[in-house]
Nucleic acid binder design. Sequence first.
RNA 1: GGAGAGGUGGCCGAGUCGGCUGAAGGCGCUCGCCUGCUAAGCGAGUAAGGGCUUAACCGUCCUUCGAGGGUUCAAAUCCCUCCCUCUCCGCCA
Length: 425
Amino acid sequence: MLDIKFVRKNPELVAKNIENRGAAQDLDDFLKLEQQRRELTQRVQDLKTRRNQASQEVALAKREGRDPAPAMEGLSELSDKIKELDGELKGLDRQVHEWLLSVPNIPAQDVPVGSDEDDNQVVRTRGEKPVMDFQPREHWDLGVELGGLDFEHAAKMTGSRFVMYVGWGARLERALINFMLDVQTGEHGYMETMPPMIVNRDSMTATGQLPKFADDLFKLENWEDYLIPTAEVPLTNIHRGEILQEDQLPLAYTAFTGCFRSEAGSHGKDTKGIIRQNQFNKVELVRFAHPEDSFEQLELLLGHAEEILKRLGLHYRVVNLCTGDLGFGAAKTYDIEVWLPGQGRYREISSCSNFTDFQARRGDIRFKPAQEKKSRLVHTLNGSGLAVGRALVAIMENCQQKDGSIVIPEALRPYMGGMDIIRKQ
RNA sequence: GGAGAGGUGGCCGAGUCGGCUGAAGGCGCUCGCCUGCUAAGCGAGUAAGGGCUUAACCGUCCUUCGAGGGUUCAAAUCCCUCCCUCUCCGCCA
């Protein structure tokens, strides 16, 4: 959510941003509404001042044993008027707030301008594509043949876009989770958590999934709660409505959770394999940062995610998302794209974003500067560290051998009971 | 699911018959004083958000005592609904 004062002072910038982001809000209507709201606020406040003063006199008269009736003259009407205008004001407040909730964040200065993913800027490339003297196979092909991925039974018990990991598949998924958590907690200083995977409406609103993206979420029937699409939601909401101490920043949390996405609107995309599932596992990183250094914190966070890929020996590149590809609440986002030989292209395996004060304002997450009277909004950041299923895909496709076996990366072997190669089971 | 208790400021905790209670008292914290270290002691300050005003400080007004609604000139205090927490019993991973 943008600062209402910022919107008022920078109308042309906000209007341009709304247009660039393909949003549909009308700024002029909003500014009119906001003007009305401010005028009415002032009027109601004045009336309340009068009412409060009069009430004091009634109290005083009673205490001194005088007749309070004269002081009460006309107060009933005044109160009715206040009640009426208060109701009107509440309506305006709600409209103003709802408008603000549906406006995207302003991109950072160094975000490339562009319309879609083709305009994203490659920041760096790390590692090498594996050399293969054979036609690399896709992960679903290998996974099913080697017995680690079972789509048929998952489809029977649930439906499409679900998978059951079996044997080495399940073990490798678990190994990745433990490996990632160990690195992020042990070496990068994140506090490990296991948050709820069901959250309420306020939490979803704070991080920006609601109200605009309800279609992407699974909502529980007869409950006002939702399955989380990412642990970003519970983790960022840890400090919702709180005022932190300045010296607590930055705060860093990590969590392994399931993630649940309806994938509405992506019919026909990635229908094979486990790239796009309605349920997947992810180790998430969330940071609460001081506004002064949140962009340095983003680089740090990005490095924490990259480290996992480096240790797994996977080739990847980092891209700076352009304005057209940037998510709703993000001011700046780096995607990490891992090379998939089977598909012959790079695929997103992590997305690291600085939301500046966008989520903090929605969720009222602040800190108290040591030298100032007023509290300030923190900046929130998050990134995958990493998407576990996609890491599994990357390993399968990058470490496959001509005979169809898969060599397990060194870093994971301790987590695999010493196993170094996956063969048909 | 059954029975009961409660939700007040960073924390604990008062709030009488509704009316100078935005909220006593304590703890914590900040600043100052005192003390040859430490501890103790003394004094002052210490909720958040918003409006007006100011260069800023100050000042002033409005809102907020779990949420929403109602009664009233006036509600932390009375009434209704909801949410949450805790205790006991039952059931269960």
